[in-house]
Amino acid sequence: MSKVHVSATVNGDPVEFLADPRESLLDCLRDHLGLTGTKEGCGTGDCGACSVLVDGTLLCACLVLGVEAEGKTIGTIEGLAQGHELHPLQRAFIDHAALQCGFCTPGILVASKALLDQNPDPTEEQVRFWLAGNLCRCTGYDKIVRAVMDAAAEIRGA
């Protein structure tokens, strides 16, 4: 099956890869670009572990074809920290111990960042509804929600 040449921007860098048209954006990020921070949980859009931003919209990378990324601007967990400087959300997750196995964490961080970018002062209910598509089987969510609320407060104060 002939592959398709795809050019996109990932975390600010221009990238190119050859995609089998059946491959998901998640497969392309992980297998062709080596960006393994985006995790595959369910592969069917239910768990949110592969959350990424495509042209600013939060999506599951498993529900996007790699070939659809042509010309798009993509943001992944690898773009969250500024060099060695962790994003306030990342620090808050450490401070609150808002992760255990950590598999859902990249997706939750990307999704939380997308929320705070459009709503810097969310209520707890808004955080919980926004993150309803990000499943965590370890934490019970409370620490995650508290970490997001704290990070939001820090960013607003900064």
């Binding site: 859009g45 949110g48 919209t57 939060l58 929320l115 926004w130 309803a132 598509g133 990000n134």
Partner: peptide, 9 residues
């Protein structure tokens, strides 16, 4: 329909 992520598509 679905999550925030699904609503994006």
């Amino acid at each position: 329909v679905g999550s925030t992520q699904v609503q994006g598509r």
